[in-house]
Simulated scan of single mutants.
Amino acid sequence: MNKVYIIVLNWNGWQDTVECVESCQKLTYPNFRILIVDNGSSDGSEAILRNRFPDIEFIQTGANLGYAGGNNIGIRYALAHGADYIWLLNNDTTVTPDALTALVDVAEKNPQVGIGGSKIYFYNKPKTLWFAGGHIDFHSGETLHMGMGDLDTGQFDYRREVDYITGCSLLARRNLIETIGLMDEEYFLYFEETAWCVKASLAGYKVVFVPESVIYHKESGSTGARSPLFYYYMTRNRLYFLKNFGRKVKWLKRFYSDFRGIAQFIKNDPCWGQKTRAITQGYLDFFRGRMGQRK
Rank of each mutant, 00 (worst) to 15 (best):
K248F: 06
S222H: 13
A47P: 01
K250E: 15
Y233D: 00
G167L: 02
F255Q: 09
Y240I: 03
F32G: 03
T194I: 15
P228T: 10
L103R: 10
L171S: 02
T223R: 00
N175G: 03
F156I: 06
A172R: 04
R236L: 10
Q293A: 08
Y123N: 12
I48A: 10
A263G: 13
L239F: 05
Y256F: 13
I266Q: 13
L89P: 07
V8I: 15
V4A: 10
G44W: 08
C197Y: 06
R52P: 11
S220L: 03
A68S: 15
H217T: 12
N51K: 14
K248Q: 12
I215Q: 01
L252W: 12
K250C: 09
Y256W: 11
R247P: 01
I36W: 02
Y29E: 12
F230V: 04
G114K: 06
L89S: 10
G116H: 04
A68E: 01
M146E: 14
D98A: 11
H145E: 09
I266E: 08
D152L: 05
T96K: 13
F32I: 09
Y5I: 04
L229E: 07
K275S: 08
D98E: 14
S227Q: 07
T280W: 14
A99D: 07
G114C: 11
F230D: 04
Y164H: 07
L144A: 04
S220P: 00
N31D: 15
W11N: 02
Y121L: 10
